[in-house]
Computed example of a mutant assay.
Amino acid sequence: MRYCSLGSGSRGNATLIEYGTTRLLVDCGFSLRTTEKRLALAGLSAHQLTAILVTHEHSDHISGVERLAQRYRLPVYMTAGTRYGMGATDLPIHEIRFGQSFDIGEIRVTPVPVPHDAREPSQFIFDSGYHRLGLLTDTGTITPLITEMYSGLDALFLEANYDPHMLASGPYPRFLQARVGGALGHLSNQQAAGLLASIDTSSLQQIVIGHISEKNNRPELAHEALSGVLDGWDGRLQLAVQNQGLPWQEITETLQPITASIGSR
């Protein structure tokens, strides 16, 4: 399994996950033309995508979904709440439900409910049978379910959106500061670090820090906060940024399947 970011931040988000011939795009917060260009930089055409998954209806995650899906006839997966929040659409939507994993090609997808100021937001865990990759952004609070679900992963794409001191002294008005830093907002550097300190990281090969605010955080602050709780961890800690995203990252193959094969699960 491998994954990359086409861009991560408040001006647009899109993440690619690939295993075998299955290629999933999680969110598309860029214009059609920008998405096509960023896919080309990743060595892909949109014709090679299998499906689009949507985490929630905020514009930095869905602004390009409809045009991309229509142009390339891609199925789109989201919760019923996200579909409602997205508004009128002619797209063929596959509604997903919490507590029910589903297969797209060679990848099993598990939706995870998260606290965020959207209708029915979801994050995802991807399982190839040999690897498990977790995607966790746009989350205001770490719940017990999140701690349980994101333990024992092989790779984790994790939001560290803001530094509390920068947010409090930054350009955002008070109401927006309260929204970002609230229980339905985003994860701070310290909250992200707290999650890492509380989960099983024994099999975790890679951590990618994503959705870093350009106004309320700095990459070095996020990196310092998360690396501070990873003493003795021998994996790789990287950053996904707004303009360049993150190149393809390969998850090392394990010797035995971690679950039963896709066909028998």
Rank of each mutant, 00 (worst) to 15 (best):
E214Q: 15
Y3H: 07
G12E: 08
E66F: 05
F126V: 10
S151L: 07
L184S: 10
S261Q: 12
F98L: 10
P113V: 11
A51V: 09
G105P: 03
V54L: 07
T139R: 02
I125S: 03
P247I: 05
E224Q: 14
V241C: 11
I62S: 01
A240W: 01
T34W: 07
V241R: 14
E224D: 14
D90K: 10
R38C: 02
Q206Y: 07
I207Y: 06
M149E: 15
T82K: 07
A51D: 03
R132F: 03
L68C: 09
L68F: 07
D234T: 13
I212H: 04
K215T: 13
M1P: 00
H56K: 04
A46L: 05
L196S: 00
H56W: 09
I209H: 02
S169H: 12
T137H: 02
Y77Q: 05
L239I: 15
L16S: 06
I107T: 04
N216S: 15
F124I: 09
R265W: 13
H116A: 01
L24D: 09
P144C: 09
A118M: 07
G20A: 11
L41A: 15
G12M: 08
I146C: 07
P164N: 07
D234R: 14
L39P: 02
E18C: 10
P121F: 05
I96Q: 01
R71F: 00
P115W: 04
S264F: 14
L176I: 14
L153Y: 05
V180G: 00
V65C: 10
E36S: 08
G232T: 09
F102S: 05
G210V: 08
E220K: 12
D138S: 13
D231M: 09
V112Q: 03
T141G: 01
L135Y: 10
L158R: 06
R71T: 15
V229S: 11
L187P: 03
I142K: 05
R71H: 11
D231P: 00
T82C: 13
A260F: 10
G170Q: 03
G140C: 04
E95Q: 12
T79V: 08
G105T: 08
A118G: 05
R119V: 14
Q191L: 13
